[in-house]
Write a protein that binds this DNA or RNA. Structure first.
Lengths: 213, 213
DNA sequence: GGGCTATGCATGGATTTCCATAAGATGCGG
DNA sequence: CCGCATCTTATGGAAATCCATGCATAGCCC
């Protein structure tokens, strides 16, 4: 059970480096998959478990930093950069864009392993968070269009009466939508629903403000 | 009105640099105050307006990166590092700890000005957020001990009855505490109060969960 | 056409919240 | 000791919410 609950992807054009890193990881009981180019990595079928990406900056096809930006939009493992010819602007850019570390060769095994541990830990957290949020989004998708209109009004703190007026429907109908929303979202209370809406980043449309600053 | 709604602090042991940077900023209509050491900066009386800190890594008293960590606990302006002998690990550490940029000499005026603009913009946002949160904390401090016990129960979604039982007091009493909380916190609705509690990072003590997935 | 979903409205009763008024006990500081 | 803040309880009525049952219309898929 030591080696299959996480995996490390290695992208480096130098085969000797790939081998050396693979062996280092193996000696720590960690599975690794290596790629010789960014394209190979992108096209590969990657297992969906906690992982991290060790990425060489200098690659044959595209620059490692560009690859970072390219995959930034979607979900991707935390990145640990390694490089033979690193410069400060590159390291700054890499870290600003979320890389876990930026190691210039030669670096110690300990430094790399520390970075990998941190990266995988980060991925674990991110995955837990994603899974959680995913469930929430799933439930949100089950709502009907009307219910999706009701939700923001309710979590804005409007009374049923006011929310109903806002939609031009009767209070009774709104109550039914509201109840359906609570049920489909599996919210145990209004407070719960408010927090869910926050996490889903549903904007508060008609805040019922009194006189607070 | 061009130059007094923001200020740049410059900490560098080289007087020529301080002068050159001061003039560069002056030519852009930006006020600057210079310091020759970290200690001078720390002890100085600094105006409370949007600002940024241009910090040399190599200082006579303490290292710039250590100064960064030292002031990290409290509120401080965003930092733009400059250095004559920069190395990658330093830049990585600086950015990971929140620095806006890390510029190795020689750098262009344009790069520095861009970093300063970004830093001051960040400070503006941080200040707005702080001011907002400050007001909220202020109101929270006005709550009595009992009211501070009631708040988390209420925003957990408990019914008044349940919250009252939790505290071993009558429902009526709890309602009064609850009303006082709403009033003192200037919350227009329960939804509002829930969001305030979120921002204050008040933990949800007794979530009233039903049968969510 | 028949079934299904979404949307809409109504009535009625149980429960809960909201609000105002009244009032007692405790403890702390001037 | 007096005043003040805090914490406590009670009563009673107005308003809002929660829940169930019943029913109507419109659109869509088979």
């Amino acid at each position: 059970m030591t080696g299959h609950d996480r995996i490390v992807f290695i992208v480096d054009d130098d085969e000797r480096i790939r081998e050396a890193l693979g062996e280092l990881l193996a000696s720590h009981g960690i599975d690794a998959v290596t790629f010789g180019s960014a394209g190979d990595y992108i096209r590969a079928d990657k297992p969906d478990i906690p992982s991290c990406l060790i990425l060489d900056v200098e690659l044959p096809d595209i620059n490692g930093l560009d690859l970072q930006r390219q995959i930034a939009a979607g979900d991707h493992p935390p990145i640990v950069f390694i490089t033979g010819h690193g410069d400060i602007p590159s390291s700054v850019r890499a870290i600003k864009h979320g890389a876990v570390d930026f190691l210039a060769k030669p670096f110690s095994d300990a430094d790399l392993m520390a970075a990998i541990d941190a990266a995988i830990g980060e991925d674990r957290r991110k995955r837990a968070e994603r899974a959680d949020l995913g469930k929430l989004r799933q439930r949100y998708l089950e709502l009907t269009p009307r219910e999706r209109e009701v939700l923001p009004l309710v979590v804005s703190g409007l009374l049923n009466k006011q929310a109903a007026a806002e939609l031009g429907i009767s209070e009774v109908t709104l109550q039914i939508h509201r109840r359906n929303v609570m049920h489909k979202m599996a919210a145990a209370s209004l407070a719960d629903l408010v927090r869910m809406a926050e996490r889903l980043e549903i904007p508060v449309t008609h805040s019922r403000r009194a006189g607070g600053s």
